[in-house]
Design a protein around this nucleic acid. Structure first.
Length: 554
RNA sequence: UGCCCUGUGGUCUAAUGGUAAGACGGCUGACUCUGGAUCAGUUUAUCGAGGUUCAAAUCCUUGCAGGGCAGCCA
């Protein structure tokens, strides 16, 4: 159960006063014109979470009132994303387009009540007549048409007698209202576009403002939760509902999610895809649900995150570190550990017998011993991480260096005895000796080493491609930049080939998540992994004291 | 500058007229066969000014700051 917030407070109060006869019914109402992102995840968790906690219902409803922008492809991906997040709408999959006929009847009803009229001003004229933020608008010359004439015209709009854009149906409210939404807003426009569900049945389509509030009413929604920018529209919704005298849900607005170092706008996200800055909508750097899924985030971590950030009315910017905290928390508990070397450095253990192979016991997850152990082969030639060796180590570097002894995880203590370089002075190979008495990783004489390294046996390891991701942007709020492209992080993706993994990884499946010990959490890529090319996406690094020490020194 | 909304540590959220709390981040330290995890400690906040009240983050007035609204988009 989530902690209290102002929305739950309102619901508690409504329950106490029996405003909706004990019912709690919410809905998640996306427009199928793009892919869902983390901001939507917040809304999904909010709406479905409330329904779950109050033993109510939450509908999935597609706000499909603009056929020129909407597609079935988006409908399918939205459903997949909501399901992935762990929520279920049973058979309550609705579409605003299901209500087109009913909506038309409502419009006719308003015309008959003298509360709506057909206007023949064009778009720019309507804008002119609307006035400005500080000056009132003026009435349309078509505002005082007779009811009979309006009825006739509206019917002929539907019948297709007029060209696109020539006529609109407007609510007759108040052109001098300080709230611009109330200055005779458009209810219907003529739009000859094939709708993904109704085909060519209609050539007039209702506007969002008219449709949304009435769809909520039709479905018996109790609490219509939406984002802040619709606050000024609420009086209009109230007007439609009251003039029509229909069931009246309570709209509650909350602040949408902003996450640091990324963008949430569909338009900007689309730009990234179209201009090729990312590898499609589900690029693991994208804040889309498809992107974070491919990156390796878990639904559980997303839900916990959504709960933790809470819900309020003030604009905020959530630190992306909080999101990373929740994925680490989840994966730490559940991801099996495995060893893999990202940037291999060959090590030859001089005193280890040629051709000998030992099977070392390794714990699959120290956080969950029930996951058991596995065998990891050890031999004379191994790889360690290049970053785990320094020829001239600074203070506080505890890893391998000439003459220094360290532990190989689950294996032996080794001591570095030699450094081999090529003609450019690049280190190509290390020579070490091992202490046979330290098998398994403990010294019988009780001596300690300062660090433990991961490794793989050269001969037994398998190759992999590993993709390391960093934040997509270099600034906290890219959307506030003059051109958000200018602050794209050029190092947001680093592709490593020639990585070596312990043989256990030979049988992994796309989508599975592992911790490569000391390197981070990784997810087997679902798109590019093939039989002979294993691709790992790094979901998130482990917290790392050493990089902090390094950064301080700089 | 018309209307609407919002101002609590670095960040996000609590406190519902009665001791400003938690999480993340940061910084210490302990422990450790992952420089992971874990544990302990620590740092920093009610936008300003008036008012109501025994008592104000909370209510009122006002100022300031931030956000939203002038699509036949949602």
């Amino acid at each position: 159960m989530a902690s209290s917030n102002f929305i739950r407070d309102i619901i508690d109060e409504d329950l106490k006063t029996d405003k909706y006869k004990g019912r709690v019914h919410t809905r998640f109402p996306p427009e199928p014109n793009g892919y869902l992102h983390i901001g939507h995840a917040k809304s999904i968790c909010l709406n479905f979470g409330i329904a779950r906690d109050y033993k109510g219902l939450c509908n999935l409803r597609f706000d499909d009132t603009n056929p020129s922008k909407e597609e079935v492809e988006y409908v399918e991906s939205i459903k997949e994303d909501v399901r992935w997040l762990g929520f279920d709408w049973d058979d309550r999959e609705y579409y605003a387009s299901d209500y087109f006929e009913q909506l038309y009847e409502y419009a006719v009803q308003l015309i008959k009540a003298g509360k709506a009229y057909v206007c023949e001003l064009n778009a720019s004229q309507i804008r002119e007549y609307r006035g400005t933020l500080t000056e009132p608008g003026k009435n349309s010359p078509y505002r005082e048409r007779s009811i009979r004439e309006n009825l006739d015209l509206f019917e002929r709009m539907r019948a297709g007698e007029f060209p696109d854009g020539s006529h609109v149906l407007r609510a007759k409210i108040n052109m001098a209202s300080p709230n611009l939404n109330m200055r005779d807003p458009v209810m219907y426009r003529i739009l000859r576009a094939e709708h993904h569900r109704t085909g060519n049945t209609w050539c007039i389509y209702p506007m969002y403002d008219f449709t949304h509030c009435l769809s909520d009413s039709i479905e018996g929604i109790t609490h219509s939760i939406c984002t802040l920018e619709f606050e000024n529209n609420r009086p209009l919704y109230d007007w439609f509902l009251d003039e029509l005298n229909v069931y009246h849900p309570q709209q509650i607005e909350f602040a949408r999610l902003n996450l640091s170092y990324t963008i949430m706008s569909k338009r900007l996200l689309l730009t990234l895809v179209k201009e090729g800055y990312v590898d499609g909508w589900n690029d693991p750097r994208m804040p889309t649900i498809g992107g974070i899924r491919r990156r390796g985030y878990t639904p559980e971590s997303m839900r916990r995150f959504s709960e933790r950030i809470g819900v309020a009315k003030r604009d905020s910017m959530v630190d992306i570190a909080l999101l990373e905290y929740y994925i680490r928390e989840d994966l730490n508990k559940h991801a099996p550990r495995v060893m893999g070397v990202l940037r291999p450095l060959k090590v030859i253990i001089e005193n280890y017998p040629d051709g000998q192979v030992e099977e070392m016991d390794a714990i699959n997850n120290p956080e969950d011993l029930s996951l058991g152990t596995r065998k990891v082969p050890f031999s004379k030639v191994i790889y360690i991480e290049r970053d785990d060796f320094m020829e001239d180590p600074p203070r506080k570097f505890f890893r391998l260096a000439p003459g220094r002894e360290v532990r190989l995880r689950y294996a032996y203590f080794i001591t570095c005895t030699g450094v081999i370089k090529d003609e450019n002075g690049e280190i190509t190979e290390l020579r070490c000796t091992y202490d046979p008495a330290t098998r398994g990783g403990d010294a019988p004489d009780g001596r300690k080493v300062k660090s433990t390294l991961h490794w793989v046996s050269a001969e037994h390891s398998i190759p992999a491609e590993v993709r390391l991701y960093d934040r997509l942007f270099t600034v906290e709020n890219p959307a506030a930049e003059e051109d958000f492209r200018s602050c794209l992080n050029p190092n947001s993706l680093e592709i490593l080939s020639g990585c070596r993994l312990e043989p256990y990884m030979a049988n992994v499946k796309p989508g599975e998540r592992y911790q490569l010990e000391r390197m981070g959490y990784f997810c087997v890529d679902t798109k590019d992994t093939t039989g002979d090319n294993l691709v790992l996406n790094r979901t998130v690094t482990l917290r790392d004291q050493w990089v902090k020490i390094q950064n301080k020194g700089e």
